[in-house]
């Protein structure tokens, strides 16, 4: 494997966003790119990352390899990079280590680190292609604020999507609260758009603890996409350049 990423910062932000959910995981490398799928310990949430080969320049992966990496170790090494550094990931066949090289774009500084790999026996789940009943795009900062605000009142949030808009509501010991968003187009700042694409009304309840955790990825993308269907996991997607993505799936609360 040899994969050069224009911004080391991208991988750093991905790792910062997921490391409180998953600790040790396999980075599956093949000629289409670098993928990661991992559940949290309680099997409530699933992280799915895809960094497509097009996100790298150049990208070369001659044989499929799984790089088993402890994310705390990876985070430590990624913190050694400067924010504008270019990152090259390298691994040999049947590797013991993954090699990370940071290059400064405007100086001759080159730093190099090896991280020891681990054997991780990871369960891989099949995620079915789903036509969701509601697809909502909204500013990622807005979603983060809603989740944090409602978590002050309750541990769970009901998300209801109708023709009128999307309503986030909660009920707790001190009282209740709700935030409703309607479709909204801002020509000057498309990052502020709220788009709601609905085929049938949806109402589901989710744990806010996990949603707040997912929102650590807000720095990766100005917009977040929420995809919902009744009685299936919520998809929270942060799109990255070149069709790469960081996705989180969250199992709904049941038995309301």
């Amino acid at each position: 494997l040899e994969a050069r990423l224009e911004q080391a910062n991208l991988l750093k932000k991905v790792v910062d966003a997921i490391k409180d959910l998953v600790q040790d995981c396999n980075f599956d490398c093949n000629d289409s790119g670098i993928a990661l799928q991992a559940m949290d310990n309680s099997h409530v949430a699933l992280v799915s990352m895809m960094l497509k080969s097009e996100s790298f320049s150049p990208f070369r992966c001659d044989r499929n390899i799984a790089l088993g990496i402890n994310l705390t170790s990876l985070q430590k090494v990624l913190r050694c990079a400067n924010s504008e550094d270019i990152l090259t990931l390298k691994a040999e066949d049947a590797p013991d280590v993954v090699n990370l090289v940071f290059e400064s774009a405007d100086s001759d500084r080159l730093s190099e680190y090896d991280i020891k790999l681990m054997d991780i026996d990871q369960e891989h789940l099949g995620i079915p292609e789903t036509e969701y009943a509601a697809n909502i795009s909204m500013p990622s900062a807005e979603f983060q604020k809603i989740c944090r605000d409602l978590m002050a009142l309750s541990e769970s949030v009901a998300i209801e999507c109708t023709k009128e808009g999307v309503k986030f509501s909660c009920n707790g010991d001190i009282g209740s609260g709700s935030v409703t968003l309607r479709s909204h187009t801002n020509v000057d700042k498309p990052e502020n758009n709220v788009e709601i694409d609905l085929t049938e009304p949806v109402a589901l309840t989710f744990s806010l603890k996990y949603l707040v955790n997912f929102c650590k990825a807000s720095g990766l993308s100005g917009q977040v996409k929420l995809c919902l269907s009744n009685e299936v996991p919520l998809l929270v997607e942060y799109g990255l350049a070149s069709n790469s993505y960081l996705r989180f799936y969250l199992a709904p609360k049941i038995g309301d």
Partner: peptide
Amino acid sequence: GSGQGNIKSFFGPP
């Protein structure tokens, strides 16, 4: 009350 669903009961083996 409401219980928490398990992601494995929705997404099967590949």
